[in-house]
């Protein structure tokens, strides 16, 4: 992993929220590198911090931030040092854009779809409205929708169509990186498959780098060449998809894979017992140890680091630690 080739490097990203009950350690020790045209799938259970990661990268954060630090190096430049205004002008949507979870419900009902897709162009590139709308229409057609849909209002479109429009909106400023935060979570299976096909197609056409946030390992495998597993705010495994899906190392990753039902094999799905811990007061040592079948004393007392277990394969687990 040479960081010279990477478009995005994240180093020790940390994000805490302040709540009435205490400080929520939403993300800690997040490290990864992305090369051009990579797709990193970030997987984990709900509340593990994967959506927070997406928001932290584009700096769309709630007001109750307690700590927000680390390095996010985009094309050799640490964008964490930029102030809000510069970040908005130079990074968000220009370099990194995002398709939010449930983006299809986030359209303003009183504007036409075309205008809403074109809006980033008008704001960021100061393009003439007419020119921007033309580009929006082209992009909408590229998303597999009739161009006339640009002149429709959100309520006139189905969920799948709105999701396509949301993707168009994320692409209109030609960003390097697109974050997909559960982009198909409320869609039907067939529509989902169509959207995934679309995402594959435009990735090739636009030479995009994706960060794909999902809880569905099956879905993740449709796009990802790299997989990061997050558990309770920390990354527990990071590897290429080929390795991850065939030889997962972390007990949690194994559990996740075992819980995904399959149609092609006769494997009976299994589940991980227990519930994820509170991020206000996480367990000592390895955060997964209370649910782990393989845990021993060391797991509850000392926190494991990310151990290298093969080329391009990191695991945060004592089973692969120095002593073993």
């Amino acid at each position: 992993m040479s960081s010279s080739k990477s478009v995005l490097s994240v180093r020790d990203l940390k994000l805490y929220y302040r709540t009435r009950k205490g400080v929520v350690k939403a993300l800690e020790e997040i490290n990864f590198d992305l090369e051009k045209e990579d797709t990193l799938a970030v997987v984990g259970e709900s509340g593990c911090g994967k959506s927070t990661l997406a928001r932290a990268l584009v700096r769309v954060l709630p007001r109750n931030i307690h700590t927000y630090e680390g390095k996010v190096i985009l094309e050799g430049r640490n964008v964490m040092e930029l102030n809000e205004e510069d970040f908005r002008r130079e990074i968000r949507w220009r370099k990194i854009s995002i398709v939010f979870q449930g983006a299809m419900n986030s359209f303003n009902p009183v504007y036409k779809i075309g205008y809403q897709v074109a809006e980033p162009l008008i704001i960021h590139d100061h393009l003439e409205k007419k020119e921007a709308l033309k580009r929006a229409r082209q992009l909408i057609e590229l998303m597999g929708m009739p161009g006339v849909f640009a002149d429709r209002y959100p309520f006139e479109l189905s969920g799948g169509m709105k999701q396509r429009a949301a993707i168009a909106m994320a692409l209109i400023t030609n960003p390097e990186i697109v974050i997909l935060d559960e982009p198909t979570s409320a869609l039907d299976v067939l529509t989902q498959a169509n959207i995934i096909n679309l995402l594959k197609k435009i990735k090739n056409e636009f030479k995009l780098t994706y960060i794909f946030i999902t809880h569905d390992l099956g879905l993740a495998s449709e796009l990802a060449n790299r997989v990061a597993v997050i558990y309770a705010g920390k990354m527990v495994e990071l590897s290429s998809a080929d390795i991850f899906y065939t030889q997962p190392k972390h007990p949690y990753s194994k559990g996740l894979l075992a819980s995904a039902p399959t149609l092609s094999t006769d494997r009976r799905p299994e589940f991980i017992t227990g519930v994820p811990p509170s991020l206000i007061d996480p367990p000592s040592g390895c955060r997964f140890h209370p649910r782990c079948r393989f845990a021993w004393e060391k797991c509850s007392s000392e926190e494991p680091a990310m151990f290298q277990v093969g080329e391009d394969h990191l695991v945060r687990c004592w089973l692969y630690g120095d002593g073993k």
């Binding site: 797709t39 099956g218 495998s221 894979l257 149609l263 092609s264």
Partner: peptide, 9 residues
């Protein structure tokens, strides 16, 4: 229906 398989991509 998606299934975990690295070939999918």
């Amino acid at each position: 229906t998606p299934e975990p398989n690295p070939e999918n991509r």
